[in-house]
Each structure stands twice: as structure tokens, then as C-alpha cells.
Write a protein that binds this DNA or RNA. Structure first.
Length: 828
RNA sequence: GGGGCGGUGGCGGAAUUGGCAGACGCAGCGGACUUAAAAUCCGCCGGCCGUGAGGCCUUGUGGGUUCGACUCCCACCCGCCCUACCA
């Protein structure tokens, strides 16, 4: 049994030891070696919350760590860095609730994150750690702001924007859904604010087409395409009685003759002009109410359409019919032209509106004849399918699809309409009326107006403030710091005032991946050689919740950089993977308030980091949501114990290694092949089960007393190499205890012989009439005739052939022999 | 309403992508060791029938394609996630 050299497996002793060894020997430092292939493996950079990591976060970091270690063992230079998304609302909110300055909490929290990440055995290159709230970083965030500004992609505008009363800041449309802000506060409303925007819409088309060039999960691509929401249609001018015509956007010009009313968004600038004097009071009341209502209130009554008649009219440009103009909040001011033609027969929303206010419904697309709707033209819902045009003057009888083209041509010929493309995506609101963010490098001068800060004057430093909480005025806390606000104009040197809004946190994360390539570079955001060596990111791993936030913004910035010839690529992340969520043992999201948080600290203390890693890899497929099981991790620990004892017992009784174990050799090569393939394809759960099967087999061999063969010893060595990425501590300890020098993580990955990895004798099933009746052993290179001969000789097959004859048979080498019978015809 | 993902034992899951369904692990049951417990080791472990060999059923439901379907096609049911008045 255990010899004096071997203590029982004790992760609490060996893990800190190897962690220190790796640190001291700089085992994971990334170098730009032009003679080696490179691999950039990146995790979404976390915001360092006060709660620290829970085991759910490890679901992201462990697989990327396995991949990085695996790549290094294949001789690649690997950039596997970690940094902190430390600027932004979450960090600041935490600081406010704790009454501590965010600088202090950020430093505390990042130290804790770093400690935890080392604890679980990650192989980050800590020389490259970055912190987006550090001036050496945000200086370049400001530099990028100026780049966008110079290229006309950053602008200031007064507009209706989301406002969160709890965060006391404006939010981008991406950060709000269902009237709830991304931090989870409800009661989000609209406010008219002067704020900064990035013109992401200028890249709308490329943000769609570029998705074809990246290896990303299809759901994420589809969410982005949907979010951008490209839709081709027509802008049609409706003449008015106030002079200038009002354009609408529609994808269905074929339904133009069915327009029985016209609707303006409450915010539409033409509302006052078009409103008849006798309707003015009512319209004004409606507009004020619609604009002031919070999104939650609007949602609550979303089933019922509201609106008022303006008393004004427009004219249908083709039918020349005069139709009434209404104001209604179901028309969005920011999409299309902020006005729609109401075609109740063929648009569900218009239908509901017409129903609500008893407006006429006119069918202009006849549904297919077999539909009952044609008999009585009283629809109970809009007909949005395809059909033949009716009630449409000269266009009657045309299929709707043709009508779209014909009406379009007619309108274009008369100068009453034009083809356009509309997008759901809006420009990106980046201003935040908050303290803890990158100051916007803009100065307002009475003489020169809006002036960018000179590059050599960067960074515009965020001043220290003790009282940095928002005061409810809607202005940034920075506006209360005269030393910050008062400055001189970069152009005329006269007194001027600084912009006091800060950039939202997504500005930092839009370029941080570039900084990792040369985090200490002073002359620019990144050193061009290093950037060219590492970029683009080869593997990017994080949760799916950033699909339309960070992942869209970073792509946009990259395209801007490419146009400015700063980078030679247009997509920053070649391959993206989303890990599944790890839920608490109760199946709920892990959170402090639910009390179901499991920390890596407690798991490492109880089972060791390797057991935690093995369990997280093994518990479910990488992309899948799964609940934590406290018994499951114990199984991982048992597995590692068995491995430990396998080596302890074998090497203590070491002896001459002589014979060859052919069966084991085949299994070894097969195992190497499987483990390699499974790491490459992110199937870590089955990678672990392959290692389990292999070590179970080695235990059997050992118990049977066959541990003297050279094959067995080669297998033990290969097992350590294969275990190294997933369980780095125990692998290094056993590597050392079995007489090897150095670290297992610096060894080359084992190779396999594809002939040996394939069995030459297969056990294949024999099916008779669709049921498996017998299994036979047959050489892999046997042909169908040989397979049939072998099969028919077996009594277990003959028994099913009695009184019948073979009609057909199929032989798939290595897979199956399938025999189909029919009864003999002799009775006839 | 639109888009996406999924449904396999008591549980997490596996199935070389159309070829022996249930690998591997968890839980459970029985046994060995122990004064006892823990740990460890051995055996059993989808359902029904059968003493047994064995037989029949079984991958949400119903149909289809095929020698053969968890896998492909059609229809339906259920669950989760994202998005939402985008004209």
C-alpha cells in the first residue's frame, strides 16, 4: 500500500506549492515569438464586484484555462490575460452603498478577484493585468473618443432618452428593456437630454454582413441581426394642407390604397401645425401625457391603443383620397419618419387602432379564395399574408409582391416616393451623468464652441471627489467640481468649461482586448507589432447577455479603427463561445439575497481546486445551463483520489518494465485521440469521462497485476499529460513524484498513432428484421460476403432465419450487419 | 406577436453525427473491511413478464422516410431564454 514516500492526496498542501512555483518561474508569461504560432484566448473582462467570484464565474474561466494550457503544450505562444472592467455604474453603486470611494473598493475587489483566480489554478499572464479605471488605460479610451469625434462618429444631440431614476443617469436603448434598466431598476422614463452619441448606425450594414465572417454561435448572430433590424421599404410622401408633404416609411407600398387614416408620433414636429384649432387642447393634453408616461405605464395598457384626432388631413398620393391625421403613441418617433399610413386591413396594429376608434377598414389585398375571410369582408384581424390586389385602381389584379414594385415605380416616377432602408438600431448613447467613468475630453468655449481636448493633454484626469453621489439635479457630479469644470480653451486659450458627463463603461470594453497585446505601451493605445502578432482574438468566451451590448460595440469600434488604418482586420473576435449558466443547488440564479451562492474559496478548501475544475468541466456540456450539485463535486474528488493512488501504488513497487500490453496500447492511443478532439471542440464533459474510463481501466490492469509492462508505464505518463490542462496541480505534483523534472505544463502534448487508435477487430451487432440478435467479432477489413458467412454460421442468427429466407442484407464495416428476411414461398 | 434553444433512467448527462440507447458520474440498494461509523473496495441499478435462459416495451405525443431513427421530414404538446407597437 502507500509507501513512506507517498502521503495521501492532499490538495491543501500541493496546490499552494505549485501556484507559487508557476508564479516564480513565470510559466504563463506570453511572448511575441515570431517563430511560433500564436493563440489569443480571452475571457470577457469582469467588473470586480464586492461579492467576489462564485463558482458560476468559474464556468467561464476554467474552460478557457484548459484551452490555453492545451495550446501551450502544443507549442503555441498563448496570450491568456485578465483585467478589470472597473469603470461604470455597478462599481460606483457599490461604493455609494458602502460609503467608500470607488478607487478604494476597486483596488480591494480586484485584489480579491486576482487571489480567487489564482486559487482555482488559472494560467493568466498577470504581467498584463489591466484596469480600465486607471489613467494609463482611460487616457486611451479618451483618445479613441477623439478618433470617433474627428471621424464624425461622435456627436452631441438633444433628444428623448431613457432615464433611470435610481441610477440617475441616461441609458442607451440597449441597456433598457421592458421599462427596466440593465441594473434591474424599474420605472425607467424618457427625458429630453443633451448628450453624446456614437454613430453606430453608420456601420449598420457591415455589422450585419461581418457576422458571416466570424465563428460565433448562431443565436448570438441572430440576436445581433434582429437588433440591427434592417428592413427595406419605401418612403412615401403624403401631401398636406399646410404646404410641405409628410413622408411615411412602409415595407408594404402595395397596401397604399388601403390607407384609411394617418398617424403621427406624439413627438412628431408637425403635430402642432397640423392640429386644427378646435382639437388643439385635446391634442396637447394627449401629447404631454404620452411623452411623460413611463415605459412601464405604457406597457401596462399596451393591449389597448390610444390616440386623438388632430382635425388635420393628408392626401393619399395615388388615390388622392383625403384621410384624417391622428396622433398615437403606438407610432415611435425614432423609427422611420415618425409617421405611418394606417392600413387597418393589412397591419395588425393599425387594425387594432381602427377598431378602437371605429375607423374604416378597406381590404386591398384579397386573401386566397379558399379563405373564409373573403366572403364577409368583416375581418377580425388584419390579413398580412400575400394575395391579389383589389380596390387599388389601376393596380387591381396584380399579386401583392408585384404591386410593391409597380407602386414603387409609379411613386418614384412622380417624385412622391423613394426606396429606403430602415434599421431598428439607434445611435449609441454614451453620456452618463455619473462620477465613476472616463471623462469626455471635450471643452466648451464661448468663442470657439465645442472643442476637443488636444491629444497631448490627455488624459483628462478624473478628479478625486468625496461626495460623488448624484444630487438629483440630473447633472453629473463632476459639475460640482470647479477645478475640473473650469479650464482653458485648447484653441484660443480663453477660459472655457469642460464637459462633465462621463463615458459609459461600454466604451472601455470596446477596445480593452487590444490593450492586452501591449499593456505598458506609452506611445499609443497599443504597440502595432504586438497588436499584429496577437490580434484578432482567436477564442473569446463569456455569457450570452452581452449579445447586443459589448459584442456589438466592440465590433463597431474595430471597424472604425480599420477605416482609420489602425488595425488590419475588421472583426475583433474570430471565434466566440457562450458558457451555460451555473445555477444554485435550488435551480435559481446564484445571488447573495437568495443565499444560494457557492464560492470557489469554500470548494477549494473542502475539495481542492482540481476537484472543482474537474467537476465544473464534467457536470454538463459547456454551453448548457446546469444546477450546482454538492454531491457531484465529491465524485470529482474521488476520481482524483483514485488517480493519486494509482500512481502511489504502482511506483512504490517499481520494477523492470518489459512486456507490451497490446490491448492497453490501443486504448491509450484511442484515449489520446479522443481527449485531444474533445478539448478542441469544447466538449469538456466527455473529455473528463474519457479520462475516467481510461484511469478505471488502468486500475483494472493494476489490480490484475499487469503493471510491469512498458505500455502500462507509458500510459501512466500520458495520463498525467492529458490531465494537466484540467487538473493542473495534481498533474504537476504527480509528474514530479514520478521522477520527472520541471513542470508538466511545459511538456509536449502526447501524440497518437491513428492505426493504433483504430481497432482492427470490431464487435459488430447483427440485426435481423430490425432487431439486434447477436454480436460477432469480425476483422475491420472484412467484406460483406465474409461478414454474412460469419453471421449465418451463428446459431443465434440461424434461429431467426428458420423457415425464412434472406431478402436483402446491408453491411456497414465497423458498424452493423443488417439482414432483412421474408417467408419462403414454398407454401404457395 | 417575432426570434432562438431544449424535452433521453430517481438526477447530471453519453451515443464515433443514420448503425448494440442509457457511456461516465451522482444518488440508491446489497456485500466486504471495521467494536462501530466515515473512508475505501466488490456487485446490482430504465420498465414489464419470466425461477431461468430469454422475451416484450422504452429517447415529450402522433404520423412519415429508411433494411435500420434519440438523430432526418411533417404536425402537435410542454419547458426555458432573448426580443418586443420597428410600420
Amino acid at each position: 500500500m502507500l509507501g513512506n514516500r507517498w502521503q495521501p492526496y492532499n490538495p491543501q498542501i500541493i496546490e499552494p506549492k505549485w501556484q507559487r512555483y508557476w508564479d516564480e518561474n513565470q510559466l504563463y508569461a506570453a511572448r511575441e515569438d515570431p517563430d511560433k504560432p500564436e493563440f489569443y484566448c480571452l475571457d470577457f473582462f469582469p467588473y470586480p464586484s464586492g461579492e467576489g467570484l462564485h463558482v458560476g464565474h468559474c464556468r467561464n474561466y476554467i474552460p478557457t484555462d484548459v484551452t490555453s494550457r492545451f495550446k501551450r503544450m502544443h507549442g503555441w505562444e498563448v496570450l491568456h490575460p485578465m483585467g478589470w472592467d472597473a469603470f461604470g455604474e455597478p462599481t460606483e453603486q457599490f461604493a455609494i452603498t458602502h460609503g467608500i470611494h470607488p478607487r478604494i473598493t476597486t483596488d480591494q475587489n480586484t485584489a480579491n478577484f486576482r487571489r480567487q483566480m489564482k486559487l482555482i489554478g488559472t494560467s493568466y499572464d498577470w504581467n498584463r493585468e489591466i484596469d480600465s479605471s486607471n489613467p494609463s488605460f482611460y487616457r486611451w479610451t479618451q483618445w479613441f473618443f477623439l478618433l470617433l469625434y474627428r471621424r464624425g462618429l461622435a456627436y452631441r444631440d438633444m433628444s428623448w432618452q431613457w432615464w433611470c431614476p435610481v441610477c440617475q443617469t441616461t441609458l442607451s436603448s440597449q441597456e433598457v428593456s421592458n421599462g427596466v434598466c440593465w441594473r434591474g431598476h424599474s420605472g425607467v422614463t424618457k427625458r429630453q437630454v443633451l448628450s453624446w452619441f456614437f454613430r453606430i448606425t453608420a456601420y449598420a450594414d457591415e455589422l450585419i454582413t461581418g457576422l458571416d465572417q466570424v465563428q460565433w454561435p448562431e443565436p448570438i448572430k441572430s440576436i445581433q441581426r434582429n437588433w440591427i433590424g434592417r428592413s427595406e421599404g419605401f418612403e412615401i410622401d403624403f401631401p398636406t394642407e399646410i404646404g410641405k408633404p409628410l413622408p411615411v416609411f412602409t415595407t408594404r407600398p402595395d397596401t397604399l390604397y388601403g390607407a384609411t387614416f394617418f398617424v403621427l408620433a406624439p413627438e412628431h414636429p408637425a403635430v402642432p401645425e397640423l392640429t386644427a384649432p378646435e382639437q388643439r387642447a385635446e391634442v396637447e393634453r394627449y401629447v404631454t401625457q404620452a411623452v411623460g408616461r413611463s415605459e412601464v405605464e405604457r406597457m401596462a395598457e399596451s393591449r389597448e391603443k390610444s390616440g386623438v384626432f388632430t382635425g388635420g388631413y393628408v392626401t393619399n398620393p395615388l388615390s388622392e383620397e383625403r384621410i384624417p391625421v391622428w396622433v398615437a403613441d403606438y407610432v415611435l418617433p425614432t423609427y422611420g419618419t415618425g409617421a405611418v399610413m394606417g392600413v387597418p386591413a393589412h397591419d395588425q396594429r393599425d387594425f387594432e387602432f381602427a377598431d378602437q376608434f371605429s375607423l374604416p377598414v378597406r381590404v386591398v389585398i384579397a386573401p386566397p379564395v379558399e379563405s373564409e375571410q373573403v366572403e364577409d369582408l368583416r375581418l377580425d384581424a388584419a390579413f398580412t399574408g400575400s394575395g391579389i390586389m383589389v380596390n387599388s385602381g389601376p393596380f387591381d389584379g396584380l399579386p401583392g409582391e408585384v404591386g410593391i414594385e409597380r407602386i414603387g415605380e409609379e411613386l418614384e416616377a412622380r417624385g412622391l416616393g423613394r426606396k429606403t432602408v430602415q434599421y431598428k438600431m439607434r445611435d449609441w448613447l454614451i453620456s452618463r451623468q455619473r462620477y465613476w467613468g472616463t471623462p469626455i475630453p471635450i471643452v466648451y468655449c464661448e468663442k470657439c464652441g465645442q472643442v476637443p481636448v488636444l491629444e497631448e493633454q490627455l488624459p483628462v484626469l478624473l478628479p478625486m471627489m468625496n461626495d460623488f453621489a448624484p444630487d438629483g439635479s440630473g447633472r453629473s457630479p463632476l459639475a460640482r467640481v470647479p477645478e475640473f469644470v473650469n479650464t482653458t480653451c485648447p484653441e484660443c486659450a480663453e477660459p472655457a468649461r469642460r464637459e462633465t458627463d462621463t463615458l459609459g463603461g461600454f466604451a472601455c470594453s470596446s477596445w480593452y482586448y487590444l490593450r492586452f497585446t501591449s499593456p505598458h505601451y506609452e506611445a499609443g493605445p497599443f504597440e502595432p507589432q504586438a497588436m499584429r502578432y496577437w490580434m484578432p482574438v482567436d477564442l473569446y468566451v463569456g455569457g450570452a447577455e452581452h449579445a447586443v451590448l459589448h459584442l456589438l460595440y466592440a465590433r463597431f469600434w474595430t471597424k472604425v479603427m480599420a477605416d482609420a488604418e489602425l488595425v488590419p482586420f475588421r472583426e475583433p473576435f474570430a471565434r466566440l463561445m457562450n458558457q451555460g449558466q451555473l445555477l444554485g443547488p435550488d435551480g435559481q440564479r446564484m445571488s447573495k439575497s437568495r443565499g444560494n451562492v457557492i464560492t470557489p474559496d469554500s470548494m477549494v478548501a473542502e475539495y481542492g481546486a482540481d476537484a472543482l475544475r474537474i467537476y465544473e468541466l464534467f457536470m454538463a456540456p459547456f454551453e448548457q445551463d446546469v444546477s450546482w450539485s454538492s454531491e457531484g463535486i465529491n465524485g470529482a474528488r474521488r476520481f482524483l483520489n483514485r488517480i493519486w493512488n494509482l500512481y502511489a501504488e504502482t511506483f512504490f513497487e517499481s520494477s523492470e518494465a518489459v512486456d507490451k500490453d497490446e490491448e492497453l496500447e490501443r486504448l491509450l492511443h484511442k484515449t489520446i485521440r479522443r481527449v485531444t478532439e474533445r478539448i478542441k471542440s469544447f466538449r469538456f464533459n466527455t473529455m473528463v469521462s474519457t479520462l475516467m474510463e481510461f484511469s478505471n481501466h488502468l486500475l483494472d490492469v493494476q489490480r490484475a497485476g499487469n503493471w510491469r509492462s512498458a505500455t502500462y508505464h507509458a500510459a501512466l505518463e500520458a495520463l498525467l499529460l492529458m490531465l494537466a490542462p484540467a487538473a493542473p496541480y495534481i498533474a504537476d505534483e504527480l509528474w514530479h513524484l514520478t521522477g520527472h523534472g520541471g513542470s508538466v505544463h511545459e511538456q509536449p502534448w502526447p501524440t497518437w498513432d491513428s492505426d493504433l487508435a483504430r481497432d482492427e477487430v470490431w464487435e459488430i451487432p447483427i440485426q435481423v428484421d430490425g432487431k439486434v440478435r447477436q454480436v460477432m467479432e469480425i476483422p475491420l477489413d472484412a467484406n460483406q460476403v465474409e461478414a454474412e458467412e460469419t453471421a449465418f454460421a451463428l446459431s443465434g442468427v440461424q434461429q431467426y432465419l428458420a423457415g425464412r429466407e434472406v431478402a436483402k442484407s446491408f453491411y456497414v464495416p465497423g458498424k452493423i450487419l443488417s439482414i432483412v428476411t421474408r417467408s419462403k414461398v414454398e407454401d404457395l
